[in-house]
């Protein structure tokens, strides 16, 4: 019985292509979680919120830069018998990185412009 063709590196290709938006999701979850818990816990905690957010933003941007630089090699075709989807996946990766970066920066802008806790009403 012939061995059926395996799909090469499905997980790696998928995660690379989605990395921008996954970084956004992680950043968003972290930022909202830290702020929510700190504001509930009150004094002593709230001072950490903004530094954490800025640090997370720098980290997210750096990771996105890394993916942008490495996407070509991570997505390179490795099966000459299969259709070449690397151009498509690279395009998806890069455009998603741009949109996700906007998302991350918009989140960060909130932290720059508004006080950490308080309902503001």
């Amino acid at each position: 019985m012939s061995e059926p063709a395996r799909d090469t590196r499905f997980l790696r290709r998928t995660l690379t292509s989605l990395s921008g938006i996954l970084i956004w999701a992680a950043h968003f979850g972290l930022v909202y979680g830290v702020q929510h818990v700190a504001c509930r816990e009150g004094a002593g905690w709230t001072g950490f919120v903004k530094p954490v957010i800025y640090l997370a933003t720098v980290l997210a941007a750096a990771l996105m830069g890394l993916v942008a630089a490495k996407a070509r090699s991570w997505l390179a075709p490795d099966d000459p018998g299969a259709p070449d989807v690397s151009i498509f996946l690279r395009a998806v990766t890069h455009i998603l990185l741009v949109l996700s970066l906007f998302g991350v920066l918009a989140t960060t802008a909130s932290a720059v412009l508004l006080p950490t806790c308080g309902a503001l009403r």
Binding site: A106, A109, S110, L113, L114, P115, L120, R121
Partner: peptide
């Protein structure tokens, strides 16, 4: 977004 944050900030 920035305009609406400015409004929020100017709140009470």
């Amino acid at each position: 977004l920035i305009y609406s944050f400015a409004l929020l900030r100017a709140g009470p």
